[in-house]
């Protein structure tokens, strides 16, 4: 069997599907993100299984030369990458604020513990 674009897309689709399922199973990927990645893998698989579908789409949109396909692929990668950067920025802000709040609360807790230890009631309790 000769390796061609259709077979490559089918292999890629199956691998992407299995990778997504595996990462969700091990709780390294949230289901929220898995939905879009499963759609991508199914899209790849469909392109491999039904190449005519891709050809019809290319003819309908007049994007039938390789550079246009590359442009579309780069566009999709850009959108995915950018949304990941936005998500990471939000997560970073939340993590930092949580860490700061935690450090401040921990400091106040230590001060309270010290006050309790040195107060007369604290001595009675200990």
């Amino acid at each position: 069997m000769r390796l061609n674009a259709e077979i490559l897309m089918m292999i890629g689709g199956v691998c992407a599907f299995l990778l997504t399922v595996w990462q969700v199973r091990s709780r390294d990927l949230r289901e929220k993100y898995a939905v879009s990645w499963i759609l991508v893998s199914l899209g790849l698989l469909a392109c491999g299984l039904f190449p005519q579908m891709l050809k019809s789409l290319a003819e309908a949109t007049h994007l039938s030369y390789p550079a246009a396909v590359l442009f579309l692929a780069l566009g999709a990668i850009y959108l995915f990458g950018f949304s990941v950067s936005l998500s990471l920025t939000r997560q970073y802000r939340r993590t930092v604020r949580l860490m700061q709040e935690m450090a401040i609360q921990e400091c106040r807790l230590r001060q309270l513990e010290r006050q309790l230890t040195f107060s007369p009631q604290g001595k009675e309790q200990s």
Partner: peptide, 18 residues
């Protein structure tokens, strides 16, 4: 004197903002 411990290194800006 008060001491705050950030659990991981977060950079000068985060430390000062704390």
């Amino acid at each position: 004197v008060h001491v705050l411990h950030l659990p991981v290194n977060a950079g000068i800006g985060v430390a000062v903002q704390t």
